[in-house]
Simulated scan of single mutants.
Amino acid sequence: MTELWNWRIDRAAPVEVYPALAEALGRVVMPLAIADPVRLPTYAVVCDVWEAPGEFGTVVDCYGVPESLNEQRAIAALARLLDRNCLLTDDTLDAGRHLLVAPDGTIRPVHFDVTETDDGEVLTNQRLCTLTHPGCRGWSRCHRSRWAPDSVNPARAAA
């Protein structure tokens, strides 16, 4: 079985992202626009990278990722290679809550305001998920996550 990964990167040009993705994943990366399903190399991962408005406007979709690859390690490696902060969705199903992955491999929960536009979701107003914010206290979804408010975790094998 294969997986779909959806990430965001803080201001990285798509032409920089593809080779960094290949190195981070340890796989051949084929851009979606030119991927021919009949001629894909056995270990290829198909990726689409594009620019969207708002914060973390570089969007990355990876299709057909083997289950054997660890998403958190892969995005931590990508953040390090690009020297850029990256985002992945967390486990709360809250559209505005993400995991911020820094180039040093640390992962922490953050919130954004999310606005739906014709160009997709626009993220603005980044803020840490912290108990000092009223929306992260009490019975919030943040407490149901394995990434609790104020948590900072290393991504193993990121360096």
Rank of each mutant, 00 (worst) to 15 (best):
T115D: 00
I75Y: 03
T124H: 00
W50S: 10
A44L: 15
C129L: 06
N85L: 02
A35R: 02
G64E: 04
A102V: 09
S151P: 04
C129Y: 07
R80H: 06
L93N: 12
T115L: 01
T117F: 00
C47Y: 10
D113E: 06
H143S: 06
L82A: 10
V38T: 13
V101W: 01
T92A: 03
L4F: 07
R137N: 12
D90L: 06
R84I: 03
L82G: 08
V46N: 08
D94E: 12
T58S: 01
A12E: 03
E71H: 03
A95V: 09
D104Y: 13
N85W: 02
T132P: 09
L87Y: 05
D90V: 06
R8V: 00
T130P: 13
A13C: 10
V122D: 01
H133Y: 14
I107D: 11
D113V: 07
T124F: 01
R137L: 12
G105R: 12
T106M: 13
W50F: 07
E55N: 01
W5G: 04
W50E: 10
T106N: 15
R27C: 11
P103W: 07
T132R: 14
R80S: 04
C62R: 00
G105Y: 12
P41T: 08
R39K: 10
D94H: 08
V114M: 04
L128N: 15
D91F: 03
A13L: 11
R84E: 01
H111E: 13
T132Q: 14
T58Y: 02
E55L: 02
P53R: 03
G135L: 13
V28A: 15
I75S: 05
L4W: 05
I9A: 08
T132W: 06
Q126I: 06
E3K: 06
H133V: 14
V17H: 06
A22I: 12
H111Y: 10
A157K: 11
I107T: 14
A35I: 07
R127H: 04
R141G: 13
S151L: 05
D48S: 11
R108Q: 15
P37Q: 08
I9P: 00
T130V: 11
I107S: 12
C47E: 11
D118R: 01
A159Y: 06
V152I: 15
L131I: 13
N153F: 05
R137D: 08
A35S: 08
